[in-house]
Design a protein around this nucleic acid. Structure first.
Lengths: 194, 194
DNA sequence: ATGAAATATTTACAGTGGAAATAATTATCG
DNA sequence: CGATAATTATTTCCACTGTAAATATTTCAT
């Protein structure tokens, strides 16, 4: 249907090249001209497919959320016990964030991306729905669901960002030292204020 | 000692102007030329006081941590009960982050700032020491102190960032809906996995 | 006062994203 | 098939960015 125009499928090619360039140079080192040059087109060619540079960044973030959803679903086994139904997709979340740190940061930057973009909203919503499911396992029909969701989200996102920025170190083999369930337990060591 | 050079105290003036410009235009809209122009000097004048644009951003982040420490200390009353010794500086932390969202984001961006800078390290360390104190109140001589610190830090930082980026809404009057202690409690509604 | 050091300006350069006009290719339809 | 329209890509230009080098100015030390 959309084959063999001038380039073929320039939009997808630009996003692919952008993802590579993003992890190599970071968000700051990213530029429209570099991406276009990598694909082999002029620096204004992307204008026909994206709404400016911000539009391209938004498309990259959208792709990121799709990848993240796949990573979380892939890490979940359907027949897991309850603690694993929390821990395994959580670890899939971290695995994605640590493998694509620059992309992950971009996904949560409403300064760089267009938060009103339809495709971005859909992709990020799909990701958040999975996280809601995890929170539901924790909340277990009791307590404020919204509070549990936000608390879990904050914990997971903060941990990922602080590790990406190097504030929290990893273990020697590169893995995370504590996983999601460790963190949750670490916030209630004694339950002193009952 | 350092008075009445050409400008007087250009370094401080540039940082002050940078803070204003930062909250007005965001990190992306920030530029060395704008800041210099705002102070009334040429755009290369800052080179004598900072190591490039990154050096100026690093100085801004340093100032940010100093302001954050002041905000946390100011919110703490020496004679508070234990739950308040956790909640009050935590709320001071949020108050600062939400009042200076762009600065807060800059402070945690190792891509934009120079993490090896001596003054930045000292300032950020001072801020983290306070957070360690809060974690110590939680941990209460039991459990893994490092785990509790990281978990609390992740929770607080993630919550601040997600609110700044608009992912988590605020209440109608602009305040946070849940405070730190709410979030901690929200992660253990039933303690189902004993 | 005179030379040295610190500070600020001027000028130039290689980048950036974006707009407008032009060219090339493909699709549509008679 | 042939002609027109729509899509796509290039060229050219502009304002803006950070940085470097040479120059000018001011302050400090002796």
């Amino acid at each position: 249907m959309k084959k063999n125009y001038h380039h073929g499928d320039l939009k997808r090619a630009l996003i692919d090249a952008g993802l590579v360039e993003l992890e190599e140079s970071g968000v700051e080192g990213l530029s429209m001209r570099k991406i276009a040059s990598r694909v082999g087109v002029s620096h204004t060619a992307p204008k026909n497919h994206f709404d400016g540079f911000r539009g391209l960044l938004t498309a990259l973030a959208t792709r990121g959320f799709e990848m993240q959803v796949a990573a979380m679903l892939h890490a979940t086994a359907p027949s897991d016990e309850i603690p694993d139904r929390v821990g395994r997709p959580g670890n899939g979340y971290f695995a994605f964030a640590l493998e694509h740190p620059e992309l992950y940061k971009l996904m949560f930057s409403r300064t760089l991306t267009d938060g009103t973009d339809e495709e971005l909203r859909r992709a990020s919503q799909a990701s958040y729905d999975i996280l809601r499911g995890i929170a539901a396992e924790l909340s277990d029909q009791q307590g404020d669901h919204r509070l549990t969701e936000w608390a879990l989200w904050s914990l997971v996102h903060g941990y990922a960002i602080l590790m990406i920025e190097g504030e929290i170190p990893r273990s020697e083999n590169g893995d995370v030292i504590y996983d999601v369930r460790d963190l949750i337990a670490g916030l209630h060591p004694t339950r002193s204020a009952h």
